[in-house]
């Protein structure tokens, strides 16, 4: 939602306060306040208290935040999702971009088929995706086992600690590559035809067209897709949590910040500390998303 133009309707009645808009926005905002803002506020309240299994609850001020900043488990999980983000997001977005450009190029046989086939995984629930890949990764009767048999050695070890992040990255890439492709493709589709005609008159080749026309036109979509992917990476939960049953020692209870928060709450009853993790992660995510948006927009202005 980087570059929504808030100024666009400025020409309309600026003189007096126009409350009619709230008639439309109101219902959304009421539900939004109730189911999203209220829990956030409640979570902030929770971070200021500490409840113990023995001895009840007490106000502790910012102590939970102080604890969190010295908590190696939190930093480790944050580092892990950052690493994940830095590697997985570019790979996924580049693959999506390639697919979108290829489909848009009209040089494919059966474009429609490719478009829908690559998009299909998005329709698979994350839980089901993790389940399917969990089976496939299995060394005994999954595909991995068959490939290893073929190669005659245990080359693929999706559940070893060296591989696990890549294994999860693969699932996430699989799930969202088509989705991002579609966002890019949609942006490519609306490039005005006269731009291409002008390029052709200038004698520009395919690659010149891509770098000169298509990529600049995609910049906005790329910023959006990046922001959504960053949020998604920082909130990584379903895939590692479901794979934990298959790789218990490799995927720790604090593998990602979100898993850490979940286990603090539901295994450890540390609701207050868990809420602190959530709030801090929310702030970090918002700041990074904001910076990406800012940088993305600035480049556009240039």
């Amino acid at each position: 939602m980087a570059s929504v133009t808030l100024t666009q309707s400025r020409p309309m009645r600026r003189n007096r306060k126009d409350w009619r808009g709230w008639g439309f926005v109101g219902p959304f905002m009421i539900v939004f306040l109730a189911v999203l803002v209220a829990p956030v506020v409640y979570a902030i309240v929770l971070t200021l208290f500490r409840q113990q299994l023995v001895g009840g609850s007490g106000f502790v001020g910012l102590e939970n935040y102080a604890l969190l900043f010295q908590d190696p488990k939190f930093w480790e999980s944050l580092f892990r999702v950052t690493l994940f983000l830095v590697v997985q997001v570019p790979i996924m977005l580049i693959l999506s971009l390639l697919a979108a450009l290829a489909i848009d190029s009209a040089r494919l046989h059966g474009t429609g088929f490719f478009r829908i086939a690559i998009f299909l995984p998005y329709a698979v629930p994350g839980v089901v995706a993790a389940l399917i890949w969990g089976f496939i990764y299995g060394n005994q009767f999954g595909l991995t086992g068959s490939i290893n048999d073929l190669l005659g050695a245990d080359i693929l070890q999706p559940f070893s600690s060296d591989w696990i992040l890549a294994s999860i990255g693969n699932i996430v890439t699989w799930e969202f590559m088509g989705y991002n492709m579609l966002i890019f493709y949609a942006a490519l589709k609306v490039i005005p035809a006269d731009l291409y005609e002008a390029a052709e008159i200038d004698g520009a080749g395919q690659f010149r067209i891509i770098s000169g026309i298509k990529l600049p036109a995609l910049r906005g979509s790329i910023v959006i897709a990046t922001i959504f992917s960053i949020i998604g990476s920082f909130q990584l939960f379903n895939e590692p949590n479901l794979l934990k049953a298959l790789a218990p020692n490799v995927i720790s209870s604090y593998f990602t910040p979100n898993m850490y928060a979940y286990n603090l709450s539901f295994a450890g009853q540390q609701f207050n500390y868990s809420a602190t993790v959530a709030i801090v992660m929310g702030i970090i995510t918002a700041v990074i998303a904001y910076i990406v948006q800012l940088r993305g927009s600035r480049q556009e202005v240039r």
């Binding site: 299994l53 600690s161 934990k244 218990p248 020692n249 720790s252 209870s253 295994a267 450890g268 009853q269």
Partner: peptide, 20 residues
């Protein structure tokens, strides 16, 4: 333990590492 459910939840993080 009176908090065995929690204890079990961090078993893999600790003893599990020796196994790994």
């Amino acid at each position: 333990l009176p908090y065995q459910v929690y204890a079990n939840s961090i078993f893999a993080d600790t003893v599990g590492q020796a196994y790994k």
